[in-house]
Design a protein around this nucleic acid. Structure first.
Length: 820
RNA sequence: GCGAGGAUGGCGGAAUUGGCAGACGCACUGGAUUUAGGAUCCAGUGAGGCAACUCGUGGGGGUUCAAGUCCCCCUCCUCGCACCA
């Protein structure tokens, strides 16, 4: 299967013209802006069909909006820092920068060859010191406000990448990088964090405003942030000055507490076990638990483990003495790291109590029946009626929550608290290819920020050894690491870590607004002009990472007064993945259909159509070479039609002069324009293309090929086609002597008076089954249609001798005769 | 376990509001043209049946004049979360 025309030179010709004539440059002061953003790319070299699906979708949107008269910003850039570059450097013995630049060169060439209408003057590269300088600038701003801090503690360590990872980068206990996939360990290290938890509430409530976001992404973010309301209660530890603070959402079960449990990795543990008889034994237990990976700790069917520490708490509500355990199922990183355990009404506590023979006390019974401790097979976690709860007995448990909360708060024994599952964002990495953290460690002055005027702190280029050693690569680069303290001028060392690449991507969409500005990261005025992003297109895998981080950054920048909006994007589209033989295409696994060779063999318009026509864009699609055939046939038929008709097009018609056949075509044209516009609007590009295919069939079938209406139809058809197959559209447009570029021509609107045929077909059902069809003029009265239907010979066969009970007519749609 | 989405011909998919199920495309079958076809054009293509007709959107029930679409129950698939107190 071949294209009838020399697609290669044709496509290159138009790509060159678009560039020379600056067709896709961004208007500088938009009157009706449209910010169309696709997630910028990790430069992996050869692109595959999965990558370009994202870009093709974005391009159809950008091109359509431009033709609809919007001032479109459609930029692209490179997420150029990150581990794979370094790993490639180690394997191929090239500098990460050289490797990255070469990949960018290749990928960019592909994107241009695909005819994606980016404004390349806006291109950005995150490894550019003029870019990462601002990462450092924002870091300092975070630091000034106490939102960047250094903290020691148990963190995720990827033994494959030899660096720490953020929680968002640990997927099912493994490294998020597909090629690595190593089981993540816990290490006790001091690291840099961004205090995203300070924004937890705003990130949570902001989700409600994200009207154009897919529901599932919003749910994922809500899960990730994990807001829950409850109280923090203090349980005094008997015989000490310590108290265990616990968080609970179920104060109604406070009378059912039979033990306390603390996480092995919280500080209070240390205080409570010091000097106790069993100290040695307990320490061994803690060590053993902490050595387990997340995967081991969370394995299904994993038995809970714990150890009694020999101390007791006093229940502040009923004064009872309850034993304290260290338990592996309690998370040190959530709430206070301590819990009150209510085995009767919490499944985890129940299992633990069963294992260690601890008492189970029912304090909530199901409405209308009893609950016996000895007969319980699992905890009763529903609402119910409170029992064994002193003065609160016999109250419904939801009411009990309120009453006990009020009581404890009033007595000063508890306080209301909202807890979040979200943890602070660990942003330091022990790798080379990233933004240096602009901090200096001085023996005398402690941690000192690099003064703003000294930014950027440049990443040293002449590094010979990128090999990860389990500690920061930059620590071994003498010229870099040794510096002077900005405060005391004494000898000091730079922070040896680099930033998580997700810092780069948290604000890149703002840099596009003013990418060459050396004085500012972007201007407030530009954010006012261009934000929020009108459509953000990317993969759903970023739902709980990047898509939370960029909201967080935007809120922070808003608070700084740098950005005019506090939500970056109100409309998000997540496209489905492209699979090959049932497996996701992947550069790192060298599994995919590669764009370079594909463009050589089939061309850009074929690639674009094949991807868009295969399935609705939000769905995963399994790549099949058969897709190419359909796309090529379609393009060939278009090409031939225009050739056969000597490229005659016409931009207007006189409606009054239409022949009967011409009228029909005119209606079909308007139906098609309407359909394509509506489908484009709701991202149904597959059916929009199907509508164009149908209309093409009509054009072939139309006999009056010299007529005005035929040429007018060709004119409109080309514009409708142009966002999908812009190269062929431009070429035919030029041959037909259309003015300027089709890419800049107004998208057609339809004539609302001409979307229905004057004669319509009404299906006739009898008892809901299709029995006949009649043709009637549009707008025929109901009575007339009923009469015609009953006279219809096929209908008569069924109605003869039967009682007609009802006739239901749905205007212009259908008639149903109910007989007995 | 919880949450979300889904199941439609041989395949990808269409049916926007309960109203002709299978648009459009691929594959396939027959024919035309051609030295030839992995080109093009025409016709056909859910299943059964000579036909009239019957059956048909994962399975079972229901509501309705009318159900792929709404309600109840079930099966399977995909994704997300999962000791979050």
């Amino acid at each position: 299967m071949k294209l009838d025309y020399d697609f290669n030179s044709l496509e290159k010709k138009w790509q060159k013209k678009w560039k020379e004539r600056e067709v896709f440059l961004t208007p500088s002061h938009p009157k009706n802006k449209y910010y169309c953003l696709v997630m910028y790319a990790y430069p992996s070299g050869d692109l595959h069909m999965g990558h370009i699906k994202n870009y093709v979708i974005g391009d159809v949107v950008a091109r359509t909006k431009r033709q609809e008269g919007k001032d479109v910003l459609h930029p692209f850039g490179w997420d150029a820092f990150g581990l794979p570059a370094e790993n490639a450097a180690i394997i191929h013995k090239v500098h990460p920068e050289a490797w990255t630049k070469e990949n960018i060169r290749i990928s960019k060439e592909h994107l241009i060859r695909l005819g994606i209408s980016y404004d390349w003057e806006k291109e950005i590269w995150s490894f550019d010191p003029n870019y990462y300088k601002w990462n450092q600038y924002f870091f300092l701003k975070f630091y000034e406000r106490g939102l960047a801090y250094r903290k020691g503690g148990w963190v995720n360590w990827c033994p494959g990448c030899q660096t720490v990872l953020a929680n968002e980068q640990v997927v099912d206990g493994r490294c998020y990088r597909g090629t690595c996939n190593a089981i993540v360990e816990k290490r006790k290290l001091e690291q840099w964090f961004f205090k995203i938890t300070a924004y937890a509430e705003r990130l949570w409530e902001g989700i409600d405003r994200l009207e154009g976001w897919p529901e599932n992404v919003k749910i994922m973010q809500r899960n990730w942030i994990g807001r829950s309301e409850g109280i923090e209660v203090s349980f005094p530890v008997l015989g000490t000055n310590y108290s265990l603070n616990i968080f609970t959402t179920r104060p109604d079960t406070l009378y059912g507490v039979t033990f306390m449990a603390i996480a092995p990795d919280v500080e209070i543990t240390e205080e409570l076990i010091r000097g106790t008889e069993e100290e040695e034994k307990i320490r061994k237990f803690i060590d053993r638990i902490l050595k387990k990976s997340e995967i081991e700790r969370q394995a299904i069917g994993q038995e809970k483990e714990g150890i009694f520490i020999g101390r007791y708490c006093k229940n502040p509500l009923n004064g009872e003495k309850v034993p304290i355990f260290i338990a592996d199922y309690v998370l040190g990183s959530y709430g206070t790291g301590c819990i009150m355990a209510v085995p009767a009404h919490d499944q985890r506590d129940f299992e633990f109590a069963k294992k260690y023979n601890l008492p189970i006390r029912v304090v909530i019974r199901p409405p209308g029946c009893d609950l016996k401790e000895k007969e319980m097979a699992e905890a009763y976690t529903e609402e119910g009626i409170m029992i064994n709860s002193g003065p609160f007995s016999n109250k419904p448990s939801p009411e009990g929550i309120k009453l006990i909360t009020d009581y404890l708060v009033e007595k000063g024994l508890a306080r209301r608290k909202v807890n979040y599952r979200l943890r602070d964002w660990l942003i330091s990495r022990q790798r080379y290819w990233g933004t240096p953290i602009p901090m200096i460690h001085c023996e005398r002055c402690g941690i000192v920020p690099v003064p703003e005027v000294d930014l950027p702190v440049r990443l040293p280029e002449d590094v010979q050894d990128y090999l990860p050693k389990g500690k920061s690569v930059l620590a071994g680069v003498e010229e870099f690491i040794n510096t002077t303290c900005p405060k005391c001028r004494g000898k000091a060392k730079r922070d040896p870590d680099t930033m998580d690449t997700f810092v780069d991507s948290s604000w890149y969409f703002l840099r596009y607004l003013d990418p060459r500005n050396e004085k500012l990261p972007f201007t407030y005025e530009a954010t006012k002009e261009w934000l929020p992003i009108d459509k953000y297109i990317g993969g759903i895998e970023h739902a709980c990472g990047h898509l939370i981080f960029f909201r967080f950054f935007t809120k922070f920048l808003y608070d700084l007064g740098l950005c005019a909006y506090d939500e970056p994007c109100l409309s998000l589209f997540t496209q489905g993945m492209v699979m090959l033989n049932g497996k996701v295409m992947s550069s790192s696994r060298r599994h995919g259909v590669w764009v370079g060779p594909f463009l050589e063999e089939h061309g850009a318009d074929v690639a674009r159509l094949a991807i868009l026509f295969a399935a609705p864009p939000e769905k995963d699609l399994d790549w099949k070479d058969e897709l190419i055939t359909g796309a090529k046939r379609f393009l060939n038929r278009i090409y031939r039609l225009f050739e056969e008709n000597n490229y005659q097009i016409k931009s207007s018609i006189k409606k009054e002069r239409l022949s009967p056949q011409g009228k029909e075509l005119y209606i079909r044209l308007n139906q098609t324009i309407k359909k394509v516009r509506e489908d484009n609007e709701r991202f149904q590009f597959n059916t929009a293309i199907a509508a164009l295919m149908e209309f093409l069939n009509d054009l072939y079938a139309f006999s009056e090929k010299e007529s005005e209406i035929f040429q007018f139809s060709l004119y409109n058809f080309l514009i409708l086609l142009s966002p999908f197959a812009p190269h062929l559209a431009e070429e035919l447009w030029e041959r037909a002597k259309g003015e300027e570029f089709i890419s800049s021509v107004s998208f057609p609107s339809y004539d609302p008076s001409a979307t229905k045929f004057p004669e319509i077909e009404i299906p006739i059902q009898i008892n809901g089954k299709l029995r006949s069809k009649i043709m009637v003029p549009l707008g025929t009265a109901e009575e007339e249609i009923k009469k015609l239907a009953l006279e219809d010979s096929k209908v008569k066969n069924y109605t003869a001798g039967k009682e007609i009970r009802r006739i239901i007519y749905i205007k212009d749609k259908l008639l149903n005769i109910v007989i007995k």
